[in-house]
Amino acid sequence: MSIFLKILLIPLLAGPLLVALRAQDPAGDPRFDPARLDRAGKYPVAIDAEQIPEEFKIEPLGEGKFRLGQITIDVAKRQLTIPVAVAETRADLEYALVHSDGKTHESLLVTDVHPARLHIAALLLFAKPGTPVTAELSWTTNDRKRSIQLPELIGITESGRKPVTWSYQAISMPNGQLAAASELSILPLIHDAAALVAHQLPAGDLRDDIYRAELPESFPAKEQPLSLTLSFAVPKKTRSGELTLSAPTSAE
């Protein structure tokens, strides 16, 4: 195991758990006391590795890959892969992906992976607000793997409208809870400040009649399992020493 991966195991145990606990609704949990809020509105939770719940434990898969619940984390490629299913193919779309308990009637895809878990996994890739994110959908037909960039399945009804682009945002509410943990929105097609990932639109752009599903004839049946891979841009240093973000690596 490389030195980088050994170092990575440290935040895998402690840091993500703190994020996960803070991302949940603290109401009714005796570990959370409003009187203990710090100036940033965060709960200073202290917990050791033996107290980490099973759902937050990281399973090493080898070759720089890990599993967190249903999420496969590829550190080298800066990718997260999750199971998804088709939700809506006819109505106007406001989302490309939401949690299965979220606004499924307005979303092309759904997943049982909670946004808070995705946030933990993204932090393990050192994702920051503003990091560009791409999404690729894949499935297997007749033992042959097929894939397509998610925006290619989303038709745009208004001429002159720019293609769909996403960047990571993960907004926290004043009580420290992850906004997406409440709204359950992951990949929006409208401006949504609470979604885990942002679609690059002006704040006032809330029209819901711009995007529609545009699935090819070869697309799998609605009940067939699909995988969605989110790729996060790689920070690189410029000649001046400043960090910039390059395009994410495409899923294989």
Rank of each mutant, 00 (worst) to 15 (best):
F126M: 12
F126Q: 15
F126V: 09
F126C: 09
F126H: 13
A127S: 08
A127D: 03
K128Y: 03
K128M: 03
P129M: 09
T131S: 03
T131I: 04
P132C: 07
P132V: 09
P132L: 06
V133M: 02
T134F: 02
A135K: 05
L137M: 04
L137Q: 02
W139Y: 11
T140V: 13
T140R: 05
T141H: 07
T141E: 08
N142F: 12
D143Q: 01
D143F: 00
R144T: 13
R144G: 01
R144V: 10
K145A: 08
K145D: 08
K145M: 03
R146C: 04
R146H: 13
R146I: 02
R146P: 00
R146M: 07
Q149F: 08
Q149H: 11
Q149G: 11
Q149K: 12
L150C: 04
L150R: 05
P151I: 04
P151G: 03
P151D: 03
I154H: 10
G155P: 09
G155I: 05
I156L: 13
I156K: 12
T157C: 09
T157G: 09
E158Q: 12
E158S: 09
E158F: 10
G160L: 13
R161G: 01
R161W: 15
K162N: 10
P163M: 06
P163R: 08
P163K: 05
P163H: 07
W166S: 05
W166V: 06
S167Y: 09
Q169G: 01
I171C: 00
I171L: 04
I171W: 01
S172M: 12
S172V: 08
M173R: 12
M173A: 14
P174C: 01
N175Y: 06
G176N: 11
Q177C: 11
L178A: 09
L178I: 08
A179I: 06
A179L: 06
A181S: 15
S182W: 11
E183S: 15
E183I: 08
E183Q: 14
L184Y: 11
S185D: 10
S185P: 00
S185M: 09
L187S: 10
L187M: 12
L187F: 12
P188V: 05
